[in-house]
Design a protein around this nucleic acid. Sequence first.
RNA 1: GCGAAAGUGGCGGAAUUGGCAGACGCGCAGGACUUAGGAUCCUGUGGGGAAACCCGUGGGGGUUCAAUUCCCCCCUUUCGCACCA
Length: 831
Amino acid sequence: MLYNIFEGRRKGKNMPHIPRVVEERIQKKWALKSVAETSVDKSKKKYYCLEMFMYPSGKIHMGHVRNYAIGDAVARYHRMLGEAVLHPMGFDAFGLPAENAAIKGQAHPKIWTETNIEYMKLQLDRLGFLYDWNRELRTSEPDYYKWNQWFFLKMYEKDLVYKAKSPVNWCPECKTVLANEQVVSGKCWRCSSTVSIKMMEQWFIRITKYAEELYNNLDKLTEWPNEVILMQKNWIGRSEGCFVHFEVFKKKTKILVFTTRIDTIYGATYLVLAPDHPLVDELTTDDRKAEVMNFKKTMSSMGTHERVVSKEKVGVFTGSHAINPFNDEKIPIYVANFVLMDYGTGAIMSVPAHDERDYEFAKIYSLPIKTVVKPEKEVEGVYDGDGYLVQSGEFSGMNNREAMKKMALKAKNEGFGEETVTYRLKDWGISRQRYWGTPIPIIYCKECGTVPVPYSDLPVRLPYDVPFTGKGESPLLKTESFLNTKCPKCGKEAMRETDTMDTFFDSSWYFFRYLDPKNDKEPINRELAHFFCPIDFYIGGIEHATMHLIYCRFFTMFLRDIGILDFGEPVKRLMCQGMVTKDGRKMSKSAGNIVDPDQMIEKYGADAVRLNILFLAPPTDQLDWKEEGAEGARRYLQKVFSLVEDAKDELLKDEVAEPQLGTRAYELRKITHRTIKKVTEEFNTRLKLNTIIASLMELTNTQIDFFAKYQKTKEERFALKESVETLLKLLSPISPHLADDLWLSLSPNHTFLVNEKWPEYNEEIAKEEEIEIPVQINGKLRSVIKVKADESEENILKIAKDDEKVKSYIKDKTLIKEIVVKGKIVTLVCK
RNA sequence: GCGAAAGUGGCGGAAUUGGCAGACGCGCAGGACUUAGGAUCCUGUGGGGAAACCCGUGGGGGUUCAAUUCCCCCCUUUCGCACCA
């Protein structure tokens, strides 16, 4: 409709390109010929191109468009290289929003999810993404989540799964557990009630068993962005140190402390336990009981958020003392808020002279400060660097690094400590008190206890008819038909586990399921996994850096250890695409700045939307959506269209002859081949697709200029045909519809560009025979000379000095230095 | 507080190995075609200056014949972690 205004006003040539018409026509042809189908030809080189699958929220957003436009361009490029490309898409279909919709009475989660998926698939198809829908998967389907349960049972066998009481975020109003990301500033994201911490039985996965490998392998992931590697390193938080046992004065108990600075142990003037440390009660003397109990109560009533926000250090003395095993000194034991139970051992030795936090606490409670490490030069304040030891018994005078090793050895030999490694990473709590997720395949029997569901009984199906009240516990708890079952061991009445799995469990292995999604014999087709995997190129948001991207690495290691895979890392190259914003702000309903992809496609066409989103910024940068840009993209595509239409008569003729050096036709060839080179190299390395598009625009501008002065010689026809055909091929990964439509119109023998061969460049033609070289005098640009590309340094210098402008600058001066960088620059330094 | 990334015309960005800063596009200005133009085409477009030239990649210093690029200090923005012992 945008075009109807001036349609028919233009004569003959230069008819406007009407995107929606062309795009629908081409999409129909693609579907008819099943171009998206994966070729499993093992004689070919494989390429697994994957974008993070999507949550079926209802409609796609611009972030999806960007993510998938990048992936589709890369996938199409590799198809054209003749590789066996796997490029699938699926749906992360379990999750809270579906259940919330049901609570609001909108629709059953299954219906809601399926309706959304159908619509979103339509949207993806309208954008022209080539997904092999034969391989589509939905995590909410029993034939998918069956294998979640299967893996859970395998983990159970391998002792990688356990149930434990642990603190969780609890919303008293919604009566449910909240994930950390659902707690906003200590409040429930839905009802704004203050979230409390509650102890609950939860299922955990021992991901910490893999902490060391998850950490060490990071150095091998050379094609991952540094920031992700760094975030994962910090998240895993590997830290080398020592365990040290401190005996408690006049008691039989020992306190285990973790420290990374055993070298400062002579400076320890007190110990601190976390408020929830199990030894607190035992260590508290009668006279201190009331105060300690009170302190503990205050601490446990605070939410995590409150506790973290109030940075003030508070604590109480337990009344007990510990003995420093190195010097037998008697030091007081405190309980304080700044020591956390879930890191290290929940107890520390405090060295106020060499630790900022210990110092702060010591100041408040007037505890002694004893210096044991001296730096080379005196510094002010708390010194936590290296130096030599003082007041440290037999270790005095030693370099602290050296002493560290010797002290650890002594502790080990004398049995009160040892070197150790701790991690910040915690075990993965996968229990959710929710309906719309994978049921955890466990049965509780009064006689036999906790019994895993036998493999032969999988899947444990999610019942359809359940009550959605939005209050109370999981709907599954109120669904008798699900809840009541027979014990697989003794056959007596038993109850099912009603917790479902965290959806991150679903997404930890989905990329292996694409290989053979309908396989009902095994979760993963090993043969295909070893052909297509690991993933060659994985694109998604950075928000998954420490969640999905750690879980899926763990899962792959686990799959290797149970013999399904023979590799342990799932992703070779990772790219995190930047956020799409509008007016610099995140798009959101509340900000009212959502850009609707449907409207954009309707207005400008899928080709222009894709071109614009790829052109506006490099894939990894934040991108601010500009509608004017879409207008520009549409204008460019119109230019390509008009050029091909205008030149069609010539492009259809077969009489051609290879152009000679020095002609206009040869110049066009040169630019054509140089563009192929530039675009190919960019696809192979940096993938800055915005610069690829810039080169294509330059090539197009050159072609238009060339055609404006077209002489209709066989040589010019050769160059024109080659150049235009090349352009269409290079453009096709980005704006595939127009490229294909024009391509098909050029010959009845043409097939879709995605099945054509990527053009090759001829280095000889691409090469420049004459180049311009800047001449600098005393660092300033003064002239530009023209020389042969392979001109010798002496000759370049001679030509430069012969240049009139250069002469005028150096005539009264003495040359001190002459620098010639062949093919680059001449610099003359003179006085 | 710690860590990381970034800062280039009016705007998005380019400069891949230290070698002509501003490719390509948006916007803007002028012109052409037009009954009309928010269509299309052409020309121009970092700042200053009549010009020769000068200045210019967040700010300040340094290395170099030469710095957007390397080093040091500072500022700002974004992100991650946030008492991690």
